[in-house]
């Protein structure tokens, strides 16, 4: 057996991807490439297709047409990718048991569980709540637990779907701090938000989508200073896009 680095899931490439449910077109011909580096933030109004795009890139749904590749391969199981849903599901177990479950699902040997779980809980700021039933946590705590669960598999790419929607500023800051730390460790973060302040704080790149299409994709500084399209200018200015 030869030793080689495991195949990388990056870059993630979308080639003219469409996705629809019956007559409803949700993603209408998107081409996009995500490379390692600073967080990529998806912005756009509600219903623009952010969540569906994340699910396509995670591999949870298949495009109606076009294709998604991970490191040049199609149909790669999500072993090195993780996603935190906007409303994450808490397993009916304790906080610590949720983490242990994620570690086991990631195929990590039992002898490592205790130590890894301790690290993950610490990172998510949940050490004091380890024995609580997960479903009794507050919204912000549940998001942090879902983040810790996602990190349990030591992912290469971490998708976050509006992780701070409906959280107060303190809870939002706690999440953003974890996201920054994760990104600094070299994990590619891809997150959606409709909070422009959050996009400014975290993004390396911005992908602006509207009505299932990529309107603009650019480094964050450039996007916010000089949006190229009229829609993006209006969105950045805080106008309502419908």
């Amino acid at each position: 057996m030869t030793m080689r680095a495991p195949d990388s899931d990056l870059p993630i490439v979308l080639e003219d991807v469409r996705y629809g449910v019956r007559d409803l077109i949700i993603i209408d011909g998107m081409s996009l490439m995500l490379t390692p580096g600073a967080p990529t933030v998806l912005i756009g109004p509600n219903g623009s297709g952010k969540t569906t795009l994340l699910r396509l890139m995670m591999g949870l749904i298949e495009p109606t047409s076009g294709r998604v590749t991970w490191g040049g391969r199609t149909h790669v199981p999500p072993a090195r990718r993780a996603i935190v849903f906007q409303r994450p599901v808490m397993l009916r177990r304790s906080v610590a048991a949720n983490i242990h479950y994620a570690l086991a699902a990631a195929g990590i040997g039992r002898h490592q569980h205790a130590e890894r779980a301790r690290d993950l809980l610490e990172q998510a700021g949940l050490s004091a709540l380890a024995e609580r039933p997960a479903r009794r946590l507050s919204g912000g705590e549940q998001q942090r637990l879902a983040l810790a669960r996602g990190l349990a598999r030591d992912p290469q790419v971490l998708f976050l779907d509006e992780p701070t929607a409906s959280l107060d500023p303190a809870a939002t800051k706690a999440i953003e701090d974890v996201v920054r730390a994760v990104s600094a460790r070299g994990i590619k973060v891809v997150m959606s938000t409709h909070d422009l302040g959050e996009a400014r704080r975290l993004a390396g790149d911005i992908v602006f989508i509207h009505r299932g299409r990529v309107i603009e994709s650019a480094p964050a500084a450039e996007f916010f200073a000089h949006p190229k399209t009229d829609d993006a200018r209006r969105f950045v200015a805080g106008e309502l896009l419908v």
């Binding site: 949870l60 072993a79 996603i83 479950y101 990631a106």
Partner: peptide, 23 residues
């Protein structure tokens, strides 16, 4: 409730049934 979360965690069919029964 669990289906997408378990799919995202790459849990196989036997693991899914075991998880549902336990929870």
């Amino acid at each position: 409730e669990y289906r997408e979360e378990l799919a995202a965690m790459n849990v196989g069919p036997i693991g899914r049934v075991a998880t549902l029964l336990w929870d």
